[in-house]
Amino acid sequence: MDSSFYLIQLLNGIQYGFLLFLVASGLTLIFGIMGIINLAHGSFYMIGAYLGFWFTGLTGNLFTGILLALPVSLGVGYLVERFAISQLYARDHLYQVLLTYGLILIANETQRILWGSDVHSVPIPQTLAGSFQLTGNQAYPVYRLFISISCIVIALGMYWVIQKTRLGMTIRAGASNREMVQILGINVDRLFAVVFSMGVTLAALAGMLSAPVNTVYPGIGDNILIISFVVVVIGGIGSIKGAFIGAMLIGLADTFGKVLLPEMASMVVYALMAAVLIWRPQGLFGRA
């Protein structure tokens, strides 16, 4: 266990954190702007992973697979928002939890009908198949670095959209005061549809990117869902910055927890969340 071993763990933790950020940023926006608890967010991650697997199989290349799967995910998100989620805007959290739970059941079963219960693997593209030799016996795969870099690019893109464009301005305004945005004459229905579809697409993209590393299997969305909620709650609901810090904290805590405390690794993240909430009940960057 030399320092390069810990360097690899650090890189793994950061890479996992980036993926969590893609999922959690959509989740936090959907809650912050639309006031919706979306339990089905993990299902969109799963749908992304399976679409990625499917289109990669059809075209033989991960990149074209992702390019084809992205618009499909966007469409799925739009339809779900129009037909199911839009019924929930004025309803209590309880009904949101329940309806999106129903969506999980439907998504899981649809997955089983379309792709069966087997575990599938997605090949890493030839160009990214190698690995960097760090020391004599420690190597870091190029593909994992590719995931991190893609996530950084996406995160910067999101930052640009949210901070510099008119759409981003409405999104920020919506997160801080929904009623006021409505009063100012912004088409809130359209804003909600855009935010939800964007959130779904980000989650699906995270599923596609991680498919070659984690393989694709039934129930893949359930774990990521709960962890993403932990991230969102630690960071403070509605805060993108919070989601980023939370995702990094959880990514690192989970990775190092598995190395240092293998017997209770999965408990570590939840203990971290409980600790943060005892200290700051509204999360790190949340408004009380």
Binding site: V230, Y270, A274
Partner: peptide
Amino acid sequence: GIYFIMLTLAF
């Protein structure tokens, strides 16, 4: 609110 829902889930 949602924090209560999530905290009970976390425990």
